[in-house]
Design a binder for these strands. Structure first.
Ligand SMILES: [Mn+2]
Ligand SMILES: [Mn+2]
Ligand SMILES: [Mn+2]
Ligand SMILES: [Mn+2]
Lengths: 223, 223
DNA sequence: AAATAAATTTAGGCATAACTAAATTATATC
DNA sequence: GATATAATTTAGTTATGCCTAAATTTATTT
């Protein structure tokens, strides 16, 4: 069996690979809040287990086996987040931290039972896709809110999940995944966004908007 | 924070203290399936943390602080067992293993939410008492089934929880906590018990009976 | 083509938690 | 009271996963 640390490294490599592309030792170390030397050590261990491809100074890539493990852990994490949210009422800014510990510890049986309880869901409370039990992930084409223009209507697709305070802030505007809104005005010179949510106008700063991803929709008023 | 291993040692010392009385290094090591030398090492560490009293060759005892930790972990374990059983339908012979890992990892918040969901329960699926959030445990005076005489009526109070195969076997007779039965016959020379459960007669061997604890009740037929 | 800066690796340590083997202490027996 | 047996402790080893500091390699300037 893999250690918790090894699972966290694989999960992180997967996520960085998705976002950026090349995953360097330094990037990985920063992401995991360890020193680069520690990352080198683990990477070598993962290589002997054939979970990553690696050549020194060249960065890491997951092998098929490594990707399978990474997706398995991500599946645990996101199912747990949704389960804690829906079944136990844990607030959406608390589920991430909790799931971070539980993801390494639940059995396949409990995973399957949560999945069934939740009706085989495809997204966690922050809108991130939950890989299915075969590791298949639904790809979305959502865009950062910062790319929106005046008058654009859209629906919140996903929100960054690791900063608890930011989540509470976003939650205070009701900007949960699935919530629809329309951009009323984008202030010039990198200014804030004024948006209309169910008739209420609120102002969202750029720093917050960066962490909100949306799906564009045709404005119903313009049909 | 305490390590998982330290928590397991404290929990085990508590349980052995309850059962037997004096907890020796050897007994503790056997219970935890480690070598006596390993137990000595951990005991010393726990002593520096003032969680146990200890003098070499004299056995260990929990301090008040140590007992608090032990009860906290036992509370997690038993709440988790009941939660997995009732909320997710995990079979009663599977909950122990699962809870053994989760008990070290759940937050106080999740503990409180499970407690509320379950309606502040006082016993786990095997009948073991769940300490309340202040560490108060309800004491029971149940007796091993092996002490019963012919004709005695009783209710199952508790069943040993660590052997999964034994639990499945006991479950096949419906001998869950709360189930009433009457002893029809105790075969001589350390023989098996014939009992009547809701009109069905079944035969229970002594080895199994040792692991079933009951509360005696007056036989309704004899009132 | 050097020199400098940045990234990465190697080397050496530390803490935890297990192990084995040998030494010590306690208990039981004659 | 000496001796054998059993229990326990000490000492030394291993593995994981982290650290710091120094050495090495790669990338960027001049
Ligand atoms: Mn799984
Ligand atoms: Mn999430
Ligand atoms: Mn607790
Ligand atoms: Mn139990």
């Amino acid at each position: 069996m893999l250690t918790h640390a090894a699972e966290d490294y694989l999960k992180s490599i997967y996520k960085l690979q998705e976002k950026g592309g090349k995953v360097s030792t330094g990037i990985l170390a920063e992401y995991l809040d360890v020193k680069p030397a520690s990352a080198t050590g683990m990477i070598k261990k993962l290589k002997t287990m054939k979970l990553v491809r690696y050549e020194r100074y060249r960065g890491v890539t997951l092998t098929a086996a490594g990707k399978t493990v990474a997706l398995e852990i991500i599946r645990h994490h996101r199912l747990l987040e949704l389960y804690l949210f829906k079944a136990l009422g844990v607030p959406w800014d608390g589920v991430h931290e909790e799931a971070e510990k539980l993801e390494h510890v639940i059995s396949e049986d409990v995973e399957a039972r949560m999945d069934e309880f939740l009706g085989y869901p495809t997204a966690d409370p922050h809108g991130a896709p939950i890989p299915d039990k075969n590791g298949v992930v639904i790809q979305t084409d959502s865009v950062p809110m910062t790319e929106l223009q005046d008058g654009q209507s859209c629906v919140v697709a996903e929100v960054s999940d690791s900063d608890s305070a930011l989540l509470r802030h976003i939650g205070s505007f009701n900007l949960y995944p699935g919530t629809a809104f329309r951009v009323v005005e984008v202030a010039p010179f990198e200014g804030p966004f004024t948006i209309d949510i169910a008739g209420q106008e609120v102002v969202i700063g750029r720093e917050v908007a960066k962490h909100i991803f949306v799906d564009k929709v045709e404005d119903p008023d313009n049909v």
